Simulated scan of single mutants.
Amino acid sequence: MSMLKSRLIKPLIIAGVAGLMAVTSVAQAAGDLTRRPQKLPDLVMGSDESDYYLSQKEYELETGKAYKLAIISNGQKEYAMVAPDFFASIFLRKVEAGGMEIKAVSLTELEFEDAAEAEIYFVPVKPGEFAFEMEGLQGKGMVGVFKVK
Rank of each mutant, 00 (worst) to 15 (best):
A116T: 05
G46F: 03
I71T: 00
R36K: 14
I9H: 02
A22K: 02
I102G: 11
R93W: 07
L54D: 04
Y79F: 08
A116G: 13
G46W: 03
E111W: 04
L54C: 00
A29H: 15
F86W: 12
V44F: 03
V23C: 12
A15V: 06
L33E: 06
M1R: 08
M1F: 13
G16K: 04
D42T: 03
F91V: 07
D114S: 13
S89A: 15
V95A: 01
A131S: 11
G139N: 14
I72G: 02
M100I: 13
D85A: 12
E109I: 12
G46L: 06
K77C: 06
S2I: 02
R36I: 05
I14K: 03
V26A: 15
V44E: 05
V82Q: 01
F91R: 12
A29L: 12
L61Y: 04
A97R: 14
A116S: 15
S2H: 01
I14A: 13
Y121S: 10
Y67L: 10
K39M: 12
S106Y: 15
K39N: 13
D48N: 14
P11K: 09
S47I: 05
L61T: 02
G19E: 03
A118F: 00
G136M: 13
R35H: 06
Y53H: 13
K65C: 02
F132P: 05
L4W: 02
P41S: 06
Y79N: 06
Q28V: 14
K103E: 13
V95M: 08
K10G: 06
G31Y: 02
Q38L: 10
V26N: 10
E60C: 03
Y79E: 01
S47T: 08
R35C: 04
E49I: 10
A104W: 01
E117F: 00
A83D: 01
L69F: 01
K77L: 11
P37V: 08
G98Q: 05
G128I: 07
A30I: 02
L43E: 04
V123K: 00
A88K: 14
L20A: 14
I9V: 14
L40V: 07
G144H: 11
A18G: 03
A88F: 03
L4D: 15
K103I: 12
R35N: 08
L8F: 08
F112N: 01
M21W: 07
S50E: 07
K57M: 05
S55E: 02
A70F: 02
I90L: 10
L8S: 08
V95K: 02
R7D: 01
D32V: 07
F130R: 01
L61Q: 01
A30D: 07
E111I: 11
K147I: 09
S55V: 05
L4M: 09
V82G: 03
G99C: 05
T108Y: 13
Q38I: 11
M100G: 14
V23M: 15
S89I: 06
E119M: 09
P124G: 08
E129W: 02
K57Y: 05
K10S: 11
L107M: 12
A88H: 13
M100Q: 15
L92E: 11
